[in-house]
Design a protein around this nucleic acid. Structure first.
Lengths: 348, 348
DNA sequence: CAAACTGCGGAATACGTTTTCCCGCTCAAC
DNA sequence: GTTGAGCGGGAAAACGTATTCCGCAGTTTG
């Protein structure tokens, strides 16, 4: 390319094991054995010479080459719907934490709520030959893409890969489940105890399993208490969705609802500011509760009643479950946290 | 789970190009040429047969093998301090967006604020031979690890890699800079215009460049306006840090400060709830301003005055900058957004 | 009509590792 | 003093793919 590197950094390819071996005056095999804990020993004098050579040359093993030689990689692949959402970034944090402590590299892809994109992602991920594929927040969509996704993942699994879903039960894979149904039930009962009787629910389309589970749990508790069904407003699973739903509820007239349950916190928070903008003060004029207990739940005013979900833990549990090799599910609790957004209400 | 599922799917290794070629009745070379847009053509009949065979077998090319054969990968590596922080997850969102539109895979690692960990990460990342390494929110720490990091990255670069820093100027790499200094100056002027005169600043240790730039800009604007220097409280760059700083400020006595500038929004938000818990109402008893304009800035009460920073854009700009191959910096603006947390103040 | 050229298939090599296999050496056991 | 085991070094074969090079047909050119 350019001339001799007289003195300074000309562009060159990174040193290979071959270079290290030559520098140390040993064979490639010996160098390889010295640099990773192989079964075989190498004489300690040679080992130190190899290590010195590697350090001198700034050698780093080519992971792809290792992967192909060993027939296995050290990566875990994570697909999420949206990294910027605290729900998923918390999961991602747990995943990277557990992965790094297992010396694994994590690759991340964002599906953006599109089942087609998700399918495409899983395909290219398969090319990575990761040890594990973790899918968080998949959308169980129209059966055609869904079936294709399942098939793709099953092929991956028969090829020796581990698949773990997060909060996506009833797909034929190990999953880390969150007690969405039970948490929502307990939340409903807590709100009933606090004196609320008439509710609205802001939920996402039914394909989003997390949403429908929470919705169902809430409904079940209400019904078993003999309270009238809440008004249900379907909207997006995002802050904007919650904001929008609140506006629609206000337009419709909000006098007959005492509290709103939004199926996640970002929706609830969006709803709170929409309510406030419309002159309906959350916590005073209307109770608001969310789900997930994301960090900022305590920072909004009034502090948001929610259901605490160990998201980070879910991420790391997914990795550990996959690495354990067991198939089977891990269940995580979901605990109600009452705060000022749903103050006790004097029943009439 | 269950025993042998006799009949189908026994555990087997994924199909290789060899299998596809055999199935299609052509050579490996032809199969390879048919499946990726090679320079060479293959007769269309053969091409369709190869594609059919690939589809039938569920073939996905082994990315590691491709990487080693071609001598280059299609991955971009991102190292952040903490995924769960909205600052970094927004950047990560931008990075993945741009990467995916360039058909690149992103691998992510979390440095967790530890320079040693960061160094270690960059080392193993180098083994990945990514096209690009993006470092966001690095901590310029004690020069020893810092120099080691720089050296590591420079070796990577002389080996043909692209390095981009985000908001970490004056390291010898291309960087996407955010106008932290100017944004903080403009914020200070806006607060002065609103009638505030006596300030406190919550900032992070000086090694965090983002923090010190913002702090310096704020200070500069204050001084050039002839206003007394603010009380400076050093704390962590996190929500907890802001919370803690606010408590310390309240303990010290808060009568003589009219407004607080926290060098980022999560700190500001943490500070607001600490103030409120201490009976100091943000927006009434004390003005609070942050920096970054994260999504939840509009959801807290009072809505948080901040400086809008195009974080997502910074992430995608970093990828584009790296891919362009140019070295040089990209500057991103930072615009003041006044909200209710800093209402205009009647000057005495 | 020979020569040059084009289009395309396949064998073989390369990429950077790990691992198997073979070999020589040393040491202990008989 | 032979033999067998144990140790450790190196040559070579893998791993799955891209690509170079060679060869063969068919086509153009003069």
């Amino acid at each position: 390319m350019t001339g001799m590197d007289d003195g300074s950094k000309t562009l060159s390819s990174p040193p290979t094991l071959h270079d290290v071996a030559r520098e140390a005056g040993v064979s490639i095999a010996t160098a390889s054995r010295a640099l990773n804990g192989s079964v075989r020993n190498v004489r300690s004098e040679n080992a130190t010479r190899v290590r010195a050579a590697a350090a001198k040359l700034g050698y780093e093993p080519h992971l792809s080459a290792q992967a192909i030689a060993k027939g296995s990689t050290r990566t875990v692949a994570l697909v999420v719907r949206n990294v910027a959402d605290p729900y998923f970034s918390s999961i991602a944090a747990g995943v990277t934490e557990a992965a790094e402590s297992a010396q694994l590299i994590v690759t991340m892809a964002v599906a953006d709520g599109s089942p087609e994109r998700e399918l495409e992602i899983v395909k290219t991920l398969r090319g990575q030959r990761p040890r594990v594929i973790i899918v968080a927040g998949s959308r169980i969509a129209g059966t055609s893409t869904r079936d294709a996704l399942v098939e793709e993942l099953e092929e991956y699994r028969t090829a020796g890969g581990q698949v773990v879903m997060i909060s996506q039960r009833d797909l034929p894979f190990s999953t880390v489940t969150i007690d969405n149904h039970g948490g929502a039930e307990r939340l409903a009962r807590a709100l009933l105890d606090a004196g609320y009787r008439r509710f609205a629910v802001f939920h996402a389309p039914a394909e989003i399993r997390t949403s429908s589970d929470r919705h169902a749990g809430f409904l079940a508790a209400l019904r078993s208490a003999g309270v009238p069904d809440p008004v249900a407003i379907e909207t997006g699973f995002t802050r904007a969705g919650g904001h929008d739903a609140a506006r629609r509820l206000v337009e419709r007239g909000v006098e007959d609802v005492e509290a709103v349950f939004a199926v996640n916190d970002v929706m609830a928070i969006g709803a709170m500011t929409a309510f406030r903008d419309a002159g309906v003060v959350p916590g005073r004029d209307i109770g608001v509760a969310g789900f997930d207990d994301i960090g900022s739940a305590v920072d909004v005013v009034p502090a948001l009643t929610s259901v605490a979900v160990p998201l980070r833990e879910a991420g790391s549990a997914a990795v550990r479950l996959a690495l354990s090799g067991d198939t089977g599910d891990v269940g995580l609790p979901a605990d109600v946290v009452l705060r000022e957004s749903t103050p006790p209400r004097r029943t009439a």
